[in-house]
Structure formats: C-alpha cells, structure tokens
Write a protein that binds this DNA or RNA. Structure first.
Lengths: 109, 109
DNA sequence: ATTGTATATTGCAATGTTACGATTAAATAA
DNA sequence: TTATTTAATCGTAACATTGCAATATACAAT
C-alpha cells in the first residue's frame, strides 16, 4: 500500500523511528553538526557552506523543526536556529536504551 | 531531482545517515528489539508476532542485512538472524560522538 | 519423486522524499 | 515608497519506500 502501518507498533517504537528518520539524511546531519560546532545559533549561511539550494536547506530545516530537534526564532531579517535540548536529551535516552539492550554473547550465527 | 547528493557530504556523514535510515522504521526497530530480547537467534516467528505479511518482514530483514546491522545463517529450513556486533558498535560510537557534541549553554533562541 | 515448511524474490499500487526554480512574505535600508 | 535581504512556500520532476499477493527457491521428510 505504501504507507507505514504505525497502528501495529508501540508509541515508543514509532517515536524513535520518527526521530531517527529526521536525522537520517547527510544534509540534516551536516546542518546539525554546524549548529553543534558554532554553539551559538546560526542562520542561513548554511546555504553557502553546504552546496545545496536555498529551498532545499529551508526544507531540511523545516523537517528538523517539525521533528522538534531544532527550534528557530526570528532575528531581524534572518532566522536563528538552535538545538532543542529536550528532544536532544530524548534522543540520547531512547537511543541509549535501544543500543544498550545488546549484550554480546558467544556468536550464534 | 529526487536523489540525495551524497557527493557533497563527508563519508562519515553519509555512513551515519545510511545506518540511521536503516533503523528509522518501527518494524525494523521492533525486529531488532525482538532479536535483542531473545539474545539467541530468532527466525521467522516475527511474521506471527508483528502483524505484517511475510514478504514485508523478509524485505525489512534484507534492509537490515544490507546495512550490515544483522547477519543471518541458514539453519536447516529456517534462517537464523542476529546482531552484527561490529556494526552495532559502530552505531554506538558514531551516534555517541554526534549526540555528545552538544553542550547545552544559556538558551540563545 | 512428491509433499510440506520456511524464506526470498518479483511485480505492482500507493505514498513519501529529495532537490530546485520560481514566487511570495516579511523585515530592514535607502 | 521602493529597493534589498533573508527565508518560507509552491509546484514539479525524478526517485525511493512501504506493503502485499503471487511466485519461486531451498531444504527436509515421506
């Protein structure tokens, strides 16, 4: 049918999948790394630094914003983006629990 | 154009994005959690446990296998899947570095 | 050989994603 | 007011993903 059957999974599974999906693109990883590096908020210089069109960057920023990973405030003519600490912590917690559940045993296959 | 422009990003950014993409689906998270829970290898009981068709499960398993996250060996009639420790560790390392790069400061926006 | 069981593969419909040019909106500057 | 600047939105082309029925493959048992 072509659309994910979210009804059959738990809220946690769907939430983690949604968050990871928002991170699962090199452009969005690059954008976030840029924000992480210049801890202070950055704006649309991304367009110059990454080699993507302005419309494309804006679209990726929107996706990160919709997922709650970043937040933005209007700063004069430009817009200032930064990490949303709550969601970032959520990702750390959820991913930590997920990845940490693996206990390596004697190889079975 | 419709296809990710991987050439303009670093190998690390592309690799992390690819790994996260493989994890970014509730069915694949559920499959991995199932493998993590019953540490020993599990087979196609997934079809019964998750409410998805056999072809769909097989497809998700293939994606996880292609990404190197799981590995499978033929065990008589059925196939035995388990976590690939190397890739799992890689995800932990890469995600840890990525998420850990955030130092929360006085809110700027 | 034939049957049964467990997975994989193929083909396809419905939907989602990525990228970009063009346009619009909003705020400042001249 | 009229530019200029910055970012969002619209529209669209090219792919990609998701899910499933149907079919194929591979092995084991009879």
């Amino acid at each position: 049918m072509g659309l994910t059957r979210t009804e059959i999974f738990s809220a946690e599974q769907n939430q983690l999948a949604t968050l990871l999906k928002a991170l699962a693109h090199p452009a969005r990883i690059a954008i976030l790394q840029r924000i992480l590096a210049s801890n202070t908020c950055i704006c649309g210089d991304l367009v110059e630094e990454l080699g993507l069109a302005q419309a494309t960057i804006s679209q990726h920023l929107k996706e990160l914003k919709t997922a709650g990973i970043i937040q933005g405030t209007i700063e004069g003519v430009s817009v200032c983006y930064c990490i949303n600490p709550v969601t970032w912590k959520l990702i750390e917690t959820q991913m930590g629990a997920f990845l940490g559940a693996y206990i390596q045993e004697a190889d079975c296959c």
